[in-house]
Each structure stands twice: as C-alpha cells, then as structure tokens.
Amino acid sequence: MIHFLVTFDAEARPLIDHFKLKRQHHERSFPVYFGEQHALIVSGAGKIAAAAATAHLHGLTGFQHQQVWINFGIAGHSTLPVGDTRLCHQIIDKHSKQVFYPQLVIKSPWPSERLFTLDEPDNSYADESLLDMEASSFFATANRYATAELVQVIKVVSDNAEAPINGIPTKQQIIELLAPQVEQLHNFSDSLQQLADQLQPDKRIGAAAEHYQQKLHFSFSQSESLQHLLQQWIALDAEISTDELCRIDAKSSRQLIEKLQQQIAAAGQPT
C-alpha cells in the first residue's frame, strides 16, 4: 500500500484524479481517500495535524509495517523557480532542531534538497532550503512504521523570494503546480513499492501457519518458531508449494515443530 499525506484539499486533487481514489465518507477526522493500492489523507496545516493524520492513516490501512509513505505538496524556497520539484534529503525541524534523513535509494526524477519545517509561515526566505510546516512530523511519525528508505517527502516550489507567499495559493494554482508531477510521482512510488515488497514475508508462510494454527494450539513463542521454520524451509526449497508446507502430520504443536526442525536439518545438508 502506498500512503500519501497532503496538507490541502487542492494538493489531493491531482492524486485523486490520477489514481482514481474514492472518498471514505464515513471518515470524520480527516478527509481520506482509498484506491486499490493507494491511500491518501488530507492533514490540514501544521506539524500536529500532520502527525495525527499520519498515525490515523496507519490505523485505517491496518497498522501494516514497511509500507510506502509519501508527503507530497507545495513548499517555499528562497531561490528555486516556482514549479521546480525536489525530493528531500534532509528535513530539519526549525523549532526543535531535530534532523531527519529520508534514505534515497532509488533513482529520482527530481534533484534532492534540504527542507526546513517551520511552526509558522515565514516570508524572509533566509535559508537556501525548502520551507514547509508538516514534513518533520510526517517523517518522524511514518518512520515509526516504515524504514527510512520507504518514507519520502516531495515538494513543488510554490513561492520564493521574488514571488513571496501572500496567503495560501488558490486551489487552482496548487492543482496547476502539482498536476504535472503526478505521472513521475506514480513511477517513483511504484519503485518504492518494489522496495517495500522485498521486505514483505512470503505469503506461503502465513497460509501454512494458519493451516497448522487451525488444527493445533500454539503459544506465542511456538507461533514465532513455526513461522521461522516455515521460512527456513522455503529458503531451502524456493519452489515448494503451500500444500507441501502443510503436509506434516503432528499430534501437537511441539511435535510439529520437532518434525519441521528435522525436515529442515535434512534439507539443509549439501547433496
């Protein structure tokens, strides 16, 4: 699942249209949209809202770990032209001085840049960096659920020292800034999803474990052992079917684990 967090409704619109997301009308805390492989939440402005929305979306999508998280939206910058897009390599919370490092391990269509997250708007453009009001708390929260390689912040410049912000840009201005980036964002997020897929457990493990757990009682540690042993069996026989993993006959969970250990020991010997 790819999770998007945006600040404003207008930032959501190009994503809703592109990914054909559907509004979850029963959700009252934040506007939330779901597609088959994508989820989007509109946080509203500020760090607290961004952290709360990130946590909320994590719950709504089933508290799954090692999923993709992307904060996409507009930001200020002292010198970059309006419309330029950047991937953030360093996020500094201006108030707390905390520094976060999204890990950039796939090729990006955009150059990378530092970002400062501010507590309130600042028209001074003193730093040669992107400026927003959400990314630090988004990253800090999402990085609890996913490794730093899967949590990314992408910003489109909406204002700079020559074209300073005078209130929030209009909905139409935001849509026009973000929409041209959505196709590349789609490709980028798919690449992140491929990374995330590498961290997901083999589906055969869950299916076989469930099969045995329906027949026998397992303590928590036995359940952990069962999954570990099934994983080891698959490592030794990559083509093994779920049916084959489920074929061991045992009268108790303890006996099953012993039999699995014997099976793996035998399979692990060089032939």
Binding site: N143, T147, A148, E149, L199
Partner: peptide, 9 residues
C-alpha cells in the same frame, strides 16, 4: 529505522 538490504541497492 534504516534497512541494510534496501540501502545496499
């Protein structure tokens, strides 16, 4: 909260 396998790529 980093992953060696992913970074290695």
């Amino acid at each position: 909260q980093q992953n060696f396998r992913l970074q290695k790529q």
